[in-house]
Every structure is written in C-alpha cells, then in structure tokens.
Design a protein around this nucleic acid. Structure first.
Lengths: 248, 248
DNA sequence: CACCCTCGTTTTGGATACAACCTCCGCGCC
DNA sequence: GGCGCGGAGGTTGTATCCAAAACGAGGGTG
C-alpha cells in the first residue's frame, strides 16, 4: 500500500532536460496544493498507485506533513485531469478507464495530435530536431518497458511542443496521462527479456518513428500529420487487440 | 458590481427541456461546492461577471451563506473549465481570452465538433430530430441577441448529444462556454433592432442550420460533418473580422 | 444459508481561526 | 511631474475543529 512514495527519486531513465524534474519537493513560492498534485500525479503515472485504488485524504496529508485542505485541492485538480474520480462523501479513487472510454480518448487524440504536429513541424528549431533524433535513437535501443514508455512519451510530446497552442498541448498531455495505464500494461505484457529483440508492436513503432522524424526534419506538416494519424490509429488497434489488458 | 445574481431566475428564453435548469438552489444530496460552481458559471456565461473582473472568495461566500472552502472548490473547477484564471495569493479573475487563444479554441473546435456530430447523427432519435427542428425554427424568428445566443448553443449541443462520447461532449461544452463572451459581444454589436430583419451573419447562419438539419434528419454523418466544419470555420472568420470585439 | 437491517466507526464535507502574502495608496526622491 | 518604495489593510492559503454521510461488522429473519 505505497500511498505516496517517500523519497523514491526513481531511476529517471536518462532524462536530461527534465521537463517535470522534481516530483516531490516544493518549488519556490509554490502552493502546497500543487506539490501534492504533482506528487499524486507522479504516483499514478508511474504506477505506484493502481487504477481503482482508494486515496484517503488523511493518509496523504499525514505522509506529506500537510493538512487535508491542500490534499482536497489536489484531488479536485487531478479529477479534472481525468486521473482521479471523486464521489461525494465516498472518497477518491485512481481513475480507471473502461474500454469505451479508452476508445473515445483515442478517437479524440486522433483528431487533435495531427493538428498539433502540423502546427509544430514548421516551427521546430534545429535544437528540437536534434533532441528528437536523440530520443528516437534511444527508444530503438531500449528494452526496459518503463524506459520505453517514458521515452516514447517524451518523443511525441516534444514533436508537438513548437505548436503555438498551449491549451491544445495541455489537453494532449492529459490524454497521454489518462491512457498511460494501458500502455504500461501492454508493454509490460509483450516486451521481451533484457537484451532480447524488440517485441510486440515495437518494431513497427520504430519504423513509424523513423518516418515521422524524417517528415519533421523536413518540416513537412502534411506528411507528419498523415503519418501520425496512422500511427495513433494503429497503436489504438494494437492495444485493443490485447483484451487481457482491459480486464482485471 | 453584481457579484452573484441574487434570485434572478432570468427570462430563460423559453427553455422547456431545461438541461441546466436551476442555477442557484441546491439539488438533493449535492455538494455545496457544486452549487457555487453552477452559480458562478451562470454569472459568467450570462455576462453578469465581466471578463477580467476580480472574484473575491469572501464576497461570494457571504452572498451564498457558505464559507470560503466550497468557493475555492468552485474556483478550481471553473479554472479547469477555462472560465476563471487563478494566481496564487493574488486571486481569481474571470478568464479573458486574447485573440490568439480565441483562434486556438476555434481550431480545436473545428477538429472535435465534426467528430461529435458524425457520431451523433446516426444515433439521433425521432424526438431529438423534432427538438432540433423546433430549435431551428425558434432561432429564425428570434431578434433578441441573448435569446439567439442561448438557442444557437442549445441547437448545436443537442445535435451532438447522441454521440456516445461523454468526455468529448463535456470538452465541447467547455469550448462553447469559453468563447461565449465573444459571441455575445459580436451579436450585441451587429444585431438589428426589434422586429427588424436579421443582421450580421444571422442570415447565413440560418441557411447553414437548414442544411445541417437536413443532413441530421437523413442521419447522414458525412454530410453533417462537412457542413458543420464549414460553419465553424466561417463563424470564426466572421467574428475575427470584427476586431472591435477583441479590444476594450 | 443467504439476505437485510442496525449501529458504531471511519471518512469526507464544511466552518472557523490564524498565518502568509499581495495590493494599493501615500510619500519621498530623482 | 513621474517613478520607485514602504507600510497598513485586505485577501488568499492553510490548519484545526465540528457535522454529516458512507462503509462495514454483527446479528436477526425468511
């Protein structure tokens, strides 16, 4: 019952830029509720809190040395991000998507992420391209499922980051977070042993990433958009094919 | 400084189904924070609270006979809906979109609402069609800007309602809420006097609604999708053409 | 043996009280 | 006259405390 990870700085799987660096300690002039939010969000995304698991306000508060007020704020925030579901007087649970909700989210992603990449591609700096290339190569050499997951996420989000649409980018990040549990379950189920070959849909993903990167390097919005749309659709179908990921 | 409307049941412009009927009083077993949320949201959407106006927790709490705790809950909720912007220790203000954010939201709507109507069209019940026809006819006969706005909103949201994608529908409603201030300003600026002819883009909108309704009556997803996409795009351009709506 | 009702415990929702921080107005300085 | 600054007042953030509702164990009943 690892409610909130104590220090647990994780392995961090080679994140150099560290977009979301410190998940635990308070930043300067930051509200307590935001600290709690980040902590709980990380715990959910990293799988330390399982879907359906109950989150007790008092326990979280004690563990962080705060009162329940900031915890409630954090839970509200996370509910709006779709990571937690609240029921009045009944408490908070880590959100759990059923198959229909999962499909819905992918349909939405299929509309929004192509838009994001089309707006981003022509605006990518040379540094951003270099960073994307680096991430792509790292992904191809990774065997560990958790690392693969983290890098894949960073690759895609970085490919959208130049789009001048902050609200869209926030929404997309939220979708990645909400569906993370299934990607984790999927890669945990299919991935091969250390030093083995890539498994599951990883070989196909590698090819798609290569194509996507090529389009991005050319700053070609139409091409990138088309490849990405097909990539998202194929990924959705692949996960959906693994029914065991959805029941438990 | 009408912070929160006292009783003010509004004119309600002939809402029979009353989806969001009671904006003020508490429903059975409802959390206080949700009451506050609905109240503030209505105040913002109906224009009683102006964009940029400050919202003081204490004032809202006193006016509703509650403490500040539920008010804070409501403000967080509304921030996530994009209707309020919060700054730590500095307070809450009614959110105000600049032109770039406004454009961004329309780009997103242009992707999501066609998806929603394509999923909804084949699933519309005969009753829903009848309701849509009724709304369409009401819109054509309305001259009052506020009524036009409310009916137009109901018409479009009703046309999506049969889509089995609850999260998508919630998002779309949020976009309508966020951009409401500009639609209001636009129709307030262009609309003709009582008993005059339709003004501004209203004649074109009437034609588009007729085409859209025809496609919906046939339950034709592709046709509805195409018409809606063009309708959204034209609306965005029309509003953007009226620069005076954006500066003040 | 399964189901339902009851009552105590636990947990959440909300109010009050206190501490941290910002806002804003007036003053001094350039 | 405009700009920066500092303190008083006010607003927000958080902790503590009380009320209300859900959860669960235990016993009774069909």
């Amino acid at each position: 019952m690892a409610l909130v990870s104590i220090p647990s700085n994780m392995d961090r799987t080679g994140r150099e830029a560290a977009e979301d660096a410190d998940g635990g300690r308070a930043r300067a002039g930051e509200l307590l509720g935001e600290v709690v939010t980040r902590r709980l969000r990380d715990d959910i995304l990293e799988g330390r809190l399982r879907p359906g698991e109950r989150i007790r306000q008092e326990a979280v508060a004690r563990e962080l040395g705060a009162s329940r007020i900031p915890v409630r704020e954090a839970l509200l925030q996370l509910e709006n991000e779709g990571l937690v579901s609240l029921a009045p007087y009944s408490g908070a649970r880590v959100a759990k998507l059923d198959f229909a909700e999962y499909t819905e989210l992918y349909r939405i992603r299929e509309q929004l992420e192509p838009l994001a990449i089309a707006e981003s591609a022509p605006r990518l700096s040379d540094e951003a391209i270099a960073q994307l290339r680096h991430l792509m190569l790292q992904i191809e050499q990774t065997r560990d499922p958790a690392t693969w997951l983290a890098l894949d996420r960073r690759f895609h989000l970085a490919s959208y980051a130049a789009a001048p649409m902050p609200r869209l980018l926030k929404m997309i990040e939220g979708f990645w977070n909400s569906t993370q549990q299934y990607r984790r379950a999927f890669y945990a189920a299919v991935s091969a042993p250390r030093d083995g070959p890539l498994a599951g849909d990883q070989p196909l993903t590698v090819v798609e990433h290569r194509l996507l990167f090529d389009a991005l390097e050319r700053r070609d919005p139409l091409d990138a958009e088309a490849i990405l749309r097909s990539h998202i659709r194929r990924t959705q179908l692949t996960l959906a094919g693994r029914q065991e990921v959805f029941d438990e």
